[in-house]
Amino acid sequence: MISLIAALAVDRVIGMENAMPWNLPADLAWFKRNTLNKPVIMGRHTWESIGRPLPGRKNIILSSQPGTDDRVTWVKSVDEAIAACGDVPEIMVIGGGRVYEQFLPKAQKLYLTHIDAEVEGDTHFPDYEPDDWESVFSEFHDADAQNSHSYCFEILERR
């Protein structure tokens, strides 16, 4: 099963200049909980913004210009990325925008964090048809001392 995991502000903004323009430790914990011990696929820009392999996960970098870091697996196509994951129950696609666009048609599940923030962004989550998805989990949280904005975790499964 292919799943996408993303944090989205208003207007589906997911990033600005290779960074997330908010401070939500709870979302980072949600991300870790849902990706640990699963292969993660990301684009080169996302890889560069993280700066290191995510521990406890097979890191697969999709790029037309593969790098030389041998701590991760470099691939040039969506099919190659899927094959590099091996026989696993769930593959997690973690961004960025172009990689989400490439995998959305193949995805069966979306793990979304909806952030109540209007922020400037240069990267967006692809538009998706809500009628194609069923919400199977939703959990709202107010902003607090650690988390700069209110947010809602949601899991959607393709109908």
Rank of each mutant, 00 (worst) to 15 (best):
I5M: 00
A6S: 15
A7S: 02
L8N: 03
A9F: 02
A9S: 13
A9I: 10
D11Q: 15
D11S: 05
D11H: 02
R12D: 10
V13G: 01
M16S: 12
E17C: 02
E17W: 00
N18E: 07
M20C: 00
W22F: 09
L24E: 11
L24D: 13
L24Q: 13
L24A: 14
P25G: 05
K32I: 01
R33T: 14
T35L: 00
L36S: 06
N37H: 06
N37T: 06
K38H: 06
K38T: 13
P39C: 06
G43R: 03
W47K: 14
E48N: 07
G51Y: 07
P55G: 09
K58M: 06
N59W: 04
I60A: 08
I61Y: 03
S64D: 05
T68A: 11
D69V: 08
D69A: 09
D70P: 10
V72N: 12
V72P: 09
W74V: 12
D79R: 05
D79G: 05
D79Y: 04
E80L: 05
A81T: 14
A84S: 09
A84F: 14
G86A: 09
V88L: 12
P89S: 07
I91V: 15
G97T: 04
G97K: 02
R98S: 02
R98V: 01
Y100P: 03
E101Y: 07
Q102C: 11
F103W: 07
K106P: 06
Q108P: 02
Q108V: 06
K109L: 12
Y111Q: 02
D116Y: 15
D116I: 15
A117V: 09
V119T: 15
V119W: 04
E120G: 13
G121P: 00
D122N: 00
H124K: 13
Y128A: 03
Y128M: 09
P130V: 13
D132L: 11
D132M: 06
E134K: 11
S135A: 03
F137V: 13
E139C: 05
E139P: 04
F140N: 14
H141S: 07
H141F: 06
H141R: 04
D142A: 14
A143L: 08
A145Y: 07
Q146A: 06
S148C: 00
H149N: 04
S150F: 06
Y151S: 11
C152S: 15
R159D: 13
